[in-house]
Amino acid sequence: MDPTESDRPQVPLKAKERAPKERVPLIELQVREYISTFLWLSLLFGLTAGVEVPLDTSPKAAAVSLSKAPWVFGSIQYLLQRWPAWLSGWVLPLLSMAVLLTLPWWSEKLGGRLTWIIFLILSLVWVGLTFLYMLMG
């Protein structure tokens, strides 16, 4: 758990400036930003050079027998194959989104640890479904 963010009191700017010892010039952060920018860019160029992005099947070609959804919607596809469309296409995604949006409220109500557990279960389920769909033939 990272305490720096949660435990730091929300002090107005003037009060912060009275404690100069905790502060370093922005350049320290910028150097790190540049380094991580280049790491990220090299990962991007690596993927671009290494993995070919396919085209779909031409609409004029013979009809494809199996059509895979893009992976971002894999989880919903997985649910759609099992449950009625209104449930897996609307209720579950919107419900999850509503839980996400009200997360600050839940943390007030239930405390941080329980909220973290709720969030973790929610995201693990969606990520898990995505992987399930991608790994299915």
Partner: peptide, 18 residues
Amino acid sequence: LYSRRQVLSLGRKTLLVL
């Protein structure tokens, strides 16, 4: 700061070259 500055300007130059 000196070496930091160097890193930063190297970064900027690399971005420019890119």
